[in-house]
């Protein structure tokens, strides 16, 4: 399951923009992952300059 460490996230929106499944959104200015639509492609994990998204087994 992919999660986002909000302590590291700078809310730049890069992962939201690049998520092919449109599983990431911004709610109340916080980046939020929807694990129901996430396909675990891990592009967000690879692209984030802060390495805020991570995989939790």
């Amino acid at each position: 399951m992919v999660k986002i460490n909000s302590d590291l996230c700078t809310v730049c929106g890069g992962c939201i923009d690049l998520c092919p499944a449109i599983a990431i959104s911004m709610v109340n200015d916080v980046v939020v992952m929807n694990n129901d639509t996430c396909t675990e492609c891990k592009i967000c994990v690879k692209v984030c300059p802060m390495r805020a998204p991570y995989v939790e087994e």
Partner: peptide, 8 residues
């Protein structure tokens, strides 16, 4: 402050 940018 620290900020980031991802641009295709």
């Amino acid at each position: 402050d620290e900020h980031t940018c991802v641009v295709n």
